[in-house]
Design a binder for these strands. Structure first.
Lengths: 199, 199
DNA sequence: ATGACAGGTCAATGAACGTTCATGTGGTGA
DNA sequence: TCACCACATGAACGTTCATTGACCTGTCAT
């Protein structure tokens, strides 16, 4: 039942947002009454925290695996990172979007935890970008501009692209999560000016 | 005072979300009491609607201007579109983010209006992408994949990138809105495989 | 059989919510 | 000067909120 509450709550937070979702709605979706939630979680906030924690742990684990699978070539690493992150935010778009939007409703200390997790993810991308740049695999200098594009800006651009796929992706749509992940992986490589990673 | 209410409400909706922002908080931020809001707007929802309407009108106008400034070359068009959209979502990130996230709390008919506006914006980008592809200015075929990257997927990737800049951009940060818009413009061109638009 | 216990119900709590309305007031055109 | 109007007030309205606690019930190990 604890698990059931987590899943139904995630779905409702995804649809209506945390503050607009009442404890009664969550428990009704599980077929029980409101008071029963407090046999499993201390508060409504605690439910949100549990959802976010699970999501962040899983997404970080997927990224670490992708990083390994990418080997030591930064372009292949980037391709795998983008693929994993896109997969996560499409296949588990409910938790993914909630994690990205609802952390503000957590108490400060737990909100910080979430922000730290987001920062760690960004650092993974930034490191791969830096490695690819110094290895000469990425081309990120705008001929029209005086100074080069900053690495953190590129990382944010790619991250926003992948993460926000969860906002519009529909599993019943024309393109599958796996296809989208492949396309995004290709687009990200073009974005950083990488040649084909098969070469 | 009507204008004041709109601005303060937008800021609070940006910080806490629509349902978590009470009428009392909005009016307190304006230095008046709760009842006074109803001299200017019929309901809290109407305030949100007014914010979203203004934001969408302005953003569509900026995009149309950018489209004109881009002339008839699709790559220059795309560069201008990305620049304008990024500028809008950084310089007016408060309204921009609210428009992107809080429309669900509107009654169905007005929520539809917002979705229609978002669809129109996406169509502008898609048309430019289609024109650039048939003119041979963009390269969007993944050699590792059987089928080409879809135009609507590319449009969404670029849109998410620009729109979400409003989520992390800080005007007091190291990079200005205009610099970011330039960098994003360059990144978008690389993403679609365009050569330098100066050629 | 019995006791413990996990997990449900039900009623009640005080606080906060959006909204209404009668009332007060300062400025403005006639 | 006076009527008017725009706008703010503050008290109420009914509803909903998250949370609590007393109670019930089924399932176990002993």
């Amino acid at each position: 039942m604890s698990r059931r509450i987590l899943d139904e709550a995630a779905r409702l937070f995804y649809e209506d947002g945390f503050p607009a979702t009442s404890v009664r709605k969550i428990t009704a979706a599980c077929g029980v009454t409101a008071g029963s939630l407090y046999n499993h979680y201390g508060s409504k906030e605690e439910v949100l925290y549990a959802i976010l924690k699970r999501a962040h742990e899983d997404s970080e684990r997927m990224l670490e695996e992708g990083l390994l699978r990418g080997g030591d070539r930064a372009d292949r690493q980037l391709a795998e990172l983008v693929r994993e992150l896109t997969l996560f935010h499409t296949e588990r778009r409910v938790e993914g979007l909630v994690a990205r939007t609802e952390w503000r409703h957590l108490p400060p200390e737990q909100a910080r935890e979430v922000l730290d997790a987001q920062r760690r993810v960004r650092r993974i991308f930034e490191r791969t970008l830096e490695r690819g740049l110094s290895a000469g695999r990425f081309r990120l200098s705008d001929p029209r501009s005086t100074r080069p594009v900053q690495v953190d800006v590129v990382a944010k651009a790619i991250l926003d692209m992948c993460i926000n796929a969860g906002q519009w992706f529909r599993p019943e749509g024309a393109v599958s999560a796996r296809e989208l992940a492949d396309q995004y992986s290709f687009l990200a490589l073009q974005l950083v000016g990488a040649g084909s990673p098969d070469a």
